[in-house]
Design a protein around this nucleic acid. Sequence first.
DNA 1: GCAAAAGTGTTACAGTTACACCCATGG
DNA 2: CCATGGGTGTAACTGTAACACTTTTGC
Lengths: 222, 222
Amino acid sequence: MDKSPLITSNHSALFQIDVYVVVFTLRENRLQVLLNDLPSAGAWQIPGLALPTDLSLEETAAQCVAKYTGLHEAYLEQLYTYGDPDRNAVSVVYFALVPADSLLTPLDESAADWFPVDTLPPLILDHGDILTYALRRLRYKLEYSAVGFELLPDYFSLSELQSTYEIILGEKLDKRNFRRRILQAGIIESTPRRRTGEGRPAQLYRYRPDAVAEVKARRLFP
Amino acid sequence: MDKSPLITSNHSALFQIDVYVVVFTLRENRLQVLLNDLPSAGAWQIPGLALPTDLSLEETAAQCVAKYTGLHEAYLEQLYTYGDPDRNAVSVVYFALVPADSLLTPLDESAADWFPVDTLPPLILDHGDILTYALRRLRYKLEYSAVGFELLPDYFSLSELQSTYEIILGEKLDKRNFRRRILQAGIIESTPRRRTGEGRPAQLYRYRPDAVAEVKARRLFP
DNA sequence: GCAAAAGTGTTACAGTTACACCCATGG
DNA sequence: CCATGGGTGTAACTGTAACACTTTTGC
């Protein structure tokens, strides 16, 4: 097994690398997170995979999302890397956002389930802290970058988007101000589609993949 | 060698983990970064150490700073973790801020040197990109959190602090606005000390270790 | 025609920027 | 007494927050 050519270590320690993914979605009007049952510990854990030799960290994270949700695309962002001196493993943690409607695909045989972020089961080790941190980062991110639509289907109404923000941030937002800002930010664009249902039909919007966004963007929400 | 109890991997790959630290300081009125000569490659690299079994990631980063600067305390923050599928090593990158005046301590025998961030030598691999990213993160951080004083001695004048910000952000700031904001933010406090020299003596300030700061703090600078 | 959700502008306020002069010391 | 850097307040402006009614559809 080759060593990195750049750093020669004295006692050349080797580690297993675990890639964990905190997967968020929006179900039943609540922000929920995917957890994996670990009966041997009588507790739940954030789903993860050991890094294999032939995949990058992000590919492994994506594969982890696929394994537990059936989705082969998701918004992924690296969160933090934890290294315990005790056990010789290092944990690289990502967070992912997946749209709830696409989750009909059955889960893997593995015993994973969704939990609202405010009513979590007992978690192993420091996974509770990691979740808390992930949630904080998600809220921060939302405030100045507008990733909310990652939790929605490709086409969505502004009311749905606003509701997403309200659920995650945990506060009511002003409808007119919300629309003005989100449109001024230029990250979504209106489409000819409309959603019909109760009340007046809603114009549908979609993400503009070419949006630069976030670069030097002011905070969008208070 | 034990495996992590949480994730059982099929082909149980093991990796060397390299901890790199992008060390920034302020010398000669320029933001400078510490680099390590790698004559075999004819290029320079970000200083790093292989993670040993008995240290945490952050401890290893701190030790790396100590090795190359002689400083046993520094502001440290995790930046990003890079995983190449090619070579079987994973790189956890930190950035550090060290006050220039404390650097009189001689460097390790290793061939490390300081370079202004705008005139870098050839760098190995993706270290140039990593540096660019570290610099962006430093600027972001400075804008809303006020870590500038980490580059200054314990006691400093407001003019020195302002100059620090101007050098890093690359733009002139208004003296009165700067003072008002930095004081309102409540992260530094005035001390009885004064610095004498040319012109009127300056009141000296120091960091308030008890400052909560940054939590929900608005951006401090444009 | 009414219930239900979508859509739309303006005003008051707060925070930010721009700006110029006096002060304390050392030489 | 003068050169040098330290220190101070206000007014115009810009961005943000608060707010209520009209529109379109399904039933």
